[in-house]
Design a protein around this nucleic acid. Structure first.
Lengths: 160, 160
DNA sequence: CGGGAATAGTTATGTCCCATAATGATGGAA
DNA sequence: TTCCATCATTATGGGACATAACTATTCCCG
C-alpha cells in the first residue's frame, strides 16, 4: 500500500465556508426538535448495540417484562404503543433468541403470557447501565439538572 | 337502519379493571420518552393536516425555504437531516403541488436552487399559526413556562 | 344449553421515512 | 487536460407503523 495522507486533513479544497442556513423558523416547533433528538438517540443506539441484535423496541420489551412478568402480549403492546400485529414478529424473534417465553395462559387459552428467560433477565441487567450511559453521553450539552428536567417534562407530555 | 344503542356506553362487560403495567423502568430513558412524544405530535399532525397533503417533512421544507430563498437542495437536506436521495421525491411532489420552484443555478449548473412560489409562501403563512397551536394543544399538560423550557432543552440537545 | 359478540393472537398487506450504492453531469485544482 | 470532489438522481432495501381480515377462544344472555 502507498503511504496515504492522514484522513483528518482536507485533501483539496477547504470547503469555502458555506453560509449556514437560518433554522430559526423551525426551532420553535417541538415536532421538529423531537425528530432531531430522537434521530440522534436512535442512531447512537444502533451504533452501540445494533451489532448485538438489540434495537430500542426490543430493549423496551425486556424492560417491561422484567418489571411485569406473565403479562399478556396485548397489554404489553398497549403499554409500549405498539400495535398487536407488529408485536408478533418482534416477540417471535426475541423468543428465537432465547430471551423470553410465550406460554399459553391456562386460565384463558387465547392469551400468551410473556416472561423473560434467565438469559433475557441477564441481558436486560447488562444493557441497562450501558444504555443509560449512552443516553447521558448523547445529552452531554445538558447539565445533569437540565437532563433531569428534560426527562420530567417529556414524561409529563405523554398520557399516563 | 335499526335503532342501535348509543355508542358511548359499554355494551356488555365493564372491562374488569386490567391492572396497569409498571412503566417505571422505561420512564428514565430519554429514548423511549422521545419516541412517545414524537408519536403523539406526528399523529396529531397527520390527523389535522394530512388531508391537505401536508406532512411534517413538507412543512419543514416550506419553513426553511421561506427563511432561506435560493438555497441548493444539498444544503437544505443537510439542515433538515434528510439524505439527498430522500429529498428528490419530496421536492418533486412539492413542485408538482406548485409550492416551490427548482431552477438550475447558472453559476453552478450541478446545483438546483430552491425557492417558494407565491402559493408556497401563502401556504406556509397560513399553516404556521395552526401548527403552533396544535403543538401547544398536544402539550396541554405543561404550563407555558414548562413548554418553553422543553423547547429550549430540546434545542440544546442537537448539534448546531 | 346455544348462539352472538367481544377478546387475543396472527397473517397479509401497504405506507412512510431513512439508509446505502451506483450513475451521470458538472466544476475545480494541479 | 486529467483527476477528484460535488450535486442530483435512480435503484434498492430495511424498519417502524398502520388497517383489514382471519382463527380460536371465552363470555354473556336469553
Amino acid at each position: 500500500m502507498t503511504t496515504t495522507l492522514p484522513e483528518a486533513t482536507p485533501r483539496r479544497r477547504a470547503t469555502p465556508a458555506p453560509p449556514p442556513l437560518n433554522l430559526s423558523p423551525l426551532m420553535g416547533h417541538v415536532g421538529f426538535l423531537l425528530r432531531l433528538a430522537q434521530q440522534q438517540v436512535f442512531d447512537e443506539f444502533h451504533r452501540g448495540f445494533g451489532q448485538a441484535g438489540i434495537t430500542p423496541a426490543r430493549y423496551s420489551v425486556l424492560a417491561l417484562l422484567h418489571a411485569n412478568p406473565d403479562v399478556p402480549q396485548a397489554r404489553l403492546a398497549e403499554a409500549l404503543r405498539i400495535k398487536p400485529p407488529n408485536m408478533v414478529a418482534l416477540l417471535a424473534e426475541m423468543e428465537a433468541q432465547g430471551l423470553l417465553d410465550r406460554r399459553v395462559d391456562a386460565a384463558n387459552r387465547r392469551a400468551n403470557l410473556l416472561r423473560l428467560t434467565a438469559a433475557g433477565r441477564a441481558l436486560y441487567e447488562k444493557l441497562t447501565p450501558e444504555i443509560l450511559a449512552m443516553e447521558q453521553q448523547v445529552a452531554h450539552r445538558l447539565t445533569p439538572t437540565q437532563y433531569a428536567t428534560l426527562i420530567k417534562l417529556l414524561a409529563k407530555l405523554s398520557p399516563p
